[in-house]
């Protein structure tokens, strides 16, 4: 970082003083029906190509499943979309008009991209209620937080989400005291309450009971349409139950794409991934 660059950033008031930030004006342009464009994406760690020239398009309102063996690049892809990892080459666009590369995680989140981690991460020391309050779509700046009030409207919204994720009775419990499955649900609730345009869901049903899995499937399917959902999952049964379009990743690139049947019958897929299942 050059000195000039540093000063430039110091003078950039919307970086530093978020309360001075103008209201977010940019709307996502989805006139081509595509919400997420990923083109020629590559990233390597110490010579290992985690993502290799990957091209992927997610339509607005669809529910897409990403499957692939360990190390196929699914989580890395999510890291790149949400701004955690920076790719070596390639482009990632949200709608036609918003370039996601170079933006911070917080900016991307505020654009309406929510993410659920592989391992459930919630704010363990705080109540379920506070977890949801924090995740709510709102001004996220310092002054806004200092003067933030819970309006009746907001409380209604939290109650609503609590009901959806079935944690109404646990609202006053510390999140850390929840069971693994409940944490998964709370994290999904945190996604919901943020009202995102695009949800990236990493292994949502890991550690859930069959019944919980079923409810998750229902929830995710019901979300699609209004929102766009990308699910990464290992549980083939689960994928079969929700998937309309499935994309198979292999060694950092797209191996096949289509409906579950198409993919299952794809000889390449059978060879590298589903082979041992049949």
């Amino acid at each position: 970082m050059s000195v000039r660059g540093a000063f430039g950033e110091l003078a950039n008031r919307d970086q530093l003083w978020p309360f001075l930030m103008p209201a977010r004006g940019a709307r996502v342009d989805v006139s081509k029906q595509v919400l997420l464009y990923i083109e020629d994406l590559s990233v390597s760690f110490d010579g290992f190509k985690a993502i290799n020239n990957l091209n992927l398009y997610i339509n607005d309102g669809e529910l897409r499943c990403l499957i692939g063996a360990n190390g196929a690049g699914k989580t890395t892809l999510m890291d790149i979309i949400t701004g955690k990892t920076h790719p070596d080459t390639g482009a990632v666009y949200f709608g036609q008009n918003i370039d996601l590369l170079g933006r911070s995680e917080a900016e991307i989140a505020e654009l309406g991209i929510g993410r659920k981690f592989q391992k459930p991460t919630v704010f363990e020391a705080q109540t379920v209620y506070a977890n949801l309050e924090l995740s709510m779509r709102a001004e996220k700046g310092i002054m806004a937080s200092l003067g933030s009030r819970l309006t009746g409207e907001k409380r209604d919204r939290i109650d609503q989400v609590l009901a959806t994720i079935g944690l109404s009775d646990e609202r006053a419990l510390a999140a850390g005291a929840l069971s693994h499955g409940q944490k998964q649900w709370l994290e999904i609730g945190m996604l919901l309450i943020a009202d995102p345009r695009l949800l990236l869901v990493d292994e949502p049903v890991a550690g859930m009971t069959a019944q919980e899995t079923e409810r998750t499937a229902e929830l995710l399917t019901s979300l699609a349409g209004e929102r766009t959902v990308v699910v990464v999952e290992h549980d083939m049964e689960f994928v079969r139950s929700i998937a309309r379009t499935v994309t198979v990743l292999h060694q950092g690139s797209v191996l096949a794409e289509g409906t579950m049947e198409q993919v299952q019958n794809d000889p390449k897929v059978i060879e590298v991934y589903l082979g041992d299942e049949h």
Partner: peptide, 17 residues
């Protein structure tokens, strides 16, 4: 202190997840 601005993980960082 300024150096780690640009390279928070030092000269020879461990890369990867």
């Amino acid at each position: 202190i300024l150096f780690i601005q640009k390279w928070p993980r030092g000269l020879f960082p461990q890369k990867g997840r």
